[in-house]
Nucleic acid binder design. Structure first.
Lengths: 194, 194
DNA sequence: TTAAAAAGCGTAACAGCTCAACTTTCTGAG
DNA sequence: CTCAGAAAGTTGAGCTGTTACGCTTTTTAA
């Protein structure tokens, strides 16, 4: 099952070559300074082929991984320890994720810098990330015994997913994350936390 | 001061002609089925002129109004009655806004349908709307005696502004709005409201 | 009166993306 | 083993949004 024939191996190789070439060129000269024609050339394929592999367009070339995040989100809600609230569970999941990932792969640094400096990529990343909203909302709703499309659950899922996006670029991301989840857990107090 | 010379009057007229032509064509045949060249033709203007009037591109042709919303937001926070919380104030402001606007202008209906059916326009509308985040966050921060860029205030501003976007497309927008602001005011309870 | 500012024009081009028609390569069922 | 067909790839043309360039015309203001 898991082993793939020559065909799929070649396909994966081409895809990888495209993603690698793109990331290298982007990191070198900036996202907007590199055209898709050039990327296709660098990977020695035609432009049409490039778009067969990445139908979502130029931006998708940068996001080659990003699997199983949805499962992790749902699991964080479903399998949280007893007595822990849903916001707490998500808060914990997001804490320190950044530094953990940077530590795992050195290239991940270029990747983040690239995204942070390119508005189009920031937007795209956000959209990809928010795709999990529905699944997360459903998990929360099931947990709370509410209908699948309950607006409150959808809102909590949405806001929680936006938290990591919001804290990026602030002076102290960890503190900012704490403030946001405090808001989601306890509501707006209007008073300084002390 | 308020009276403008022939020059500015003509400019405004051209701009209006473009916006009108665009809205009509879009409503007729759908956003993606109408090209910018055709719109320019319909307004009897060259394509370059069109882009001089709407430098933000095709999407901007649809959003011709939308002034003073920012001032209204800030005022809602600053001039709210004593004893009313910030979330309450914003909640009140958003309540019934939809029906009020539809009542004011019959064409507003087409406008909304168009936006709801076109992903590119939805995205653009959201971005325009969220531009006020900074101003709103500053107003909230000032009110609470916190620094301008306090993450909690920014988060509240962001979430509040997203509320109207989130409730669109739900079965009962008014109820959904209530739920969202209940979350922002009191935090996540995990229990049915009853 | 006149010079600069601003609106507009047409052409040409670029970038992202798609389409159509065709070739090559692999797969799998008979 | 073979052969039909699916899937990857190619080429090339073309569409759409958008911008740059160089030019003419109108309006303004000194």
């Amino acid at each position: 099952m898991t082993e793939m024939g020559r065909r799929e191996r070649k396909k994966a190789a081409t895809r990888q070559a495209l993603a690698d070439a793109a990331l290298r060129l982007f990191a070198d000269r900036g996202y907007d300074e590199v055209g898709v024609r050039e990327i296709a050339d660098a990977a020695d394929v035609s432009v049409t082929t490039l778009f067969k592999h990445f139908p979502d367009g130029k931006e998708a070339l940068v996001f080659d991984q990003d699997v199983d995040r949805e499962a992790a989100l749902v699991a964080a809600v479903r399998e949280r320890p007893a007595g822990q609230s849903v916001p707490e569970a998500l808060h914990r999941m997001f804490q320190g994720e950044h530094s953990r990932r940077v530590h795992a792969d050195p290239r991940f640094d270029d990747f983040l810098r690239l995204i942070d400096t390119t508005p189009a990529l920031r937007e795209y990343a956000r959209r990809m990330w928010l795709r999990h909203e529905h699944a997360l909302a459903a998990a929360i709703a099931e947990d709370a015994g509410l209908p699948d499309d309950d607006p409150g659950c959808r809102a909590l899922a949405h806001f929680a997913l936006e938290a990591p996006v919001l804290v990026r670029g602030t002076g102290d991301p960890d503190a900012a994350l704490d403030r946001i989840f405090d808001l989601l857990a306890n509501g707006w107090t209007g008073e300084r936390v002390g």
